[in-house]
């Protein structure tokens, strides 16, 4: 793999399911294009049924796309070598209930072929400690709570020190402490150079974690680009705080829509002898943007490769 090659490149991914008996064609993915770069955390957002899990399954050949090209580490297709460099946590953390936590991690480590013996045992113990399950390492998974299963699932995805991790809804079922822990783990992993691609319904987590976002709606990609580019693009304006000379104890504030109005307002305050205290850019939260994309067809957001995102009307 050349250092500049993206970890994953997806072009024109299409998938249609055929229902049993009536043989109806249900298009699940209409056209998905995006890429993931090394060391970046990319969020994969979309409403229920938007095609997130189907996309992830197509990426891992758990479902086969009808059309499209998937390139891993600069090479077409998902070879066994590429698989060895990928970690995966599925949407629902159902694992082998008969295994203990330690056995479970060792099993997946052995399957990866990248780590074995004493190294594997040490890595498994280290990860159990990292996901705060060291006390449950010798207990069978059938006795684990949902949150514990989610955390051991994240550990299995990381057991072989992958270069790329795909996490399908990693925060689901976790309490606030657990979500904080998972966020910290994702940050740590990315800091070590691993690319992270995770789907989520929890937009504040995506907003905090992701440098890039991919948003899908009804099987189509509606946005790919930087998180801040998206947030900046759909900003609400500027908030100005000032004090007037007549009543200096009162802090006044006003929101203006754009830069031109911001200058006009600042000039007006200064002309009256007022004092500008603060000017803040008001941005919509990812949640608001997501709702807009999800429910308003007129405000589809699109971004082309290497360009800033823009609102398409």
């Amino acid at each position: 793999m050349s250092s500049s090659a993206p970890v994953l490149q997806v072009r024109g991914l299409k998938k249609t399911f055929i229902t049993p008996f009536r043989r109806l064609r249900v298009p699940a993915l209409k056209k998905i294009d995006f890429q993931i770069n090394a060391g970046e955390i990319t969020g994969f957002l979309g409403a229920n049924g938007a095609g997130k899990t189907t996309t992830i399954k197509c990426l891992l050949e758990l479902a086969f796309p009808d059309e499209g090209e998937i390139t891993y580490f600069g090479q077409k297709g998902l070879s066994l070598e590429a698989k060895a460099r990928i970690g995966f946590l599925p949407e629902r953390p159902y694992f082998y209930e008969h295994l203990t936590g330690l056995e479970f991690l060792q099993f997946y480590g052995q399957l990866s072929g990248r780590i074995r013996g004493v190294d594997l045992r040490r890595r498994a113990e280290e990860l159990l400690e990292r996901v705060k399950l060291q006390h449950a390492g010798t207990r069978p998974l059938r006795g684990y709570s949902k949150g514990m299963l989610q955390r051991i699932g994240i550990a299995q995805a990381l057991i072989h020190r992958p270069d790329f991790v795909i996490l399908d809804e990693p925060m689901t079922g976790l309490d606030p402490d657990g979500r904080f822990e998972v966020r910290e783990i994702i940050r740590e992993v990315a800091k070590q150079g691993t690319a992270v691609f995770f789907s989520s319904h929890l937009l504040p987590d995506a907003e905090q974690l992701c440098r890039r976002l991919v948003i899908v709606k009804k099987g189509e990609m509606v946005f790919e680009g930087g998180t801040h580019e998206l947030l900046d693009q759909v900003q609400r304006g500027w908030l100005i705080h000032w004090r007037s000379p007549e009543n200096p104890n009162e802090l006044k504030s006003e929101t203006v829509a754009d830069l031109v109005n911001l200058q006009v307002q600042i000039d007006a305050v200064r002309k009256r002898g007022g004092q500008i205290e603060d000017v803040t850019r008001v941005r919509a939260s990812l949640e608001e943007i997501f709702m807009k994309i999800g429910f308003e067809d007129s405000a589809l957001l699109k971004s082309q490769q290497g360009r800033s995102p823009e609102v398409v009307r």
């Binding site: 698989k83 060895a84 694992f95």
Partner: peptide, 8 residues
């Protein structure tokens, strides 16, 4: 799912 996502 987790099994087939491994290099097998």
């Amino acid at each position: 799912l987790t099994l087939l996502a491994r290099p097998i």
